[in-house]
């Protein structure tokens, strides 16, 4: 799945400006996370139109790029996230970051940026997990 990643300087109103641009382009945000450091933040978004979102943000001077992430479907039961992660750790795959993904169904889901994407998909598939792809969520 394609994620929209935006580099944001840590100052007032910068996140609001970025989101304003997406709003004007009629882009819907499905899920998001912000990683923060003292000087800057990294805004990570799952949106209904990544191409349009990236172009609009770049046009306004934002540093916006695509990143490939894995969206894993999780049964809404105790321990399912743990099981997914243990299949990755058994395969020796590190997680750069992860966050919860909003779905329209009763399912839970997470977005993962693994150190090795193909390996992660294989390990999760072998453990019986399924995935969301672009378009499944909107």
């Amino acid at each position: 799945m394609k994620q929209l990643s935006v580099f944001l300087e840590n100052r007032e109103g910068r996140l609001e400006e970025a989101l304003g641009i997406l709003k004007d382009q009629n882009i819907n945000i499905i899920s998001m996370s912000v990683a923060d450091t003292a000087d800057y933040g990294m805004l990570r978004l799952i949106v209904n139109d990544v191409e349009k979102g990236k172009e609009a943000l770049q046009k306004e001077g934002f540093s916006a790029h695509f990143s490939e992430v894995v969206a894993v479907r999780l049964p809404h039961v105790v321990g399912s996230l743990h099981d997914a992660l243990s299949s990755l750790s058994k395969a020796g795959i590190n997680i750069e970051y992860l966050y919860a993904l909003c779905t329209k169904t009763d399912e839970a889901a997470i977005v993962i940026k693994p150190s090795d994407k193909d390996g992660a998909v294989k390990a999760l598939t072998d453990a019986g997990f399924k995935f969301f792809t672009d378009g499944d969520l909107f």
Partner: peptide
């Protein structure tokens, strides 16, 4: 300035 070629979505890379 974080130009195109420096960009990463991972904080570790940027650090």
């Amino acid at each position: 300035e974080v130009e195109e070629r420096f960009f990463s979505d991972e904080i570790r890379e940027l650090e």
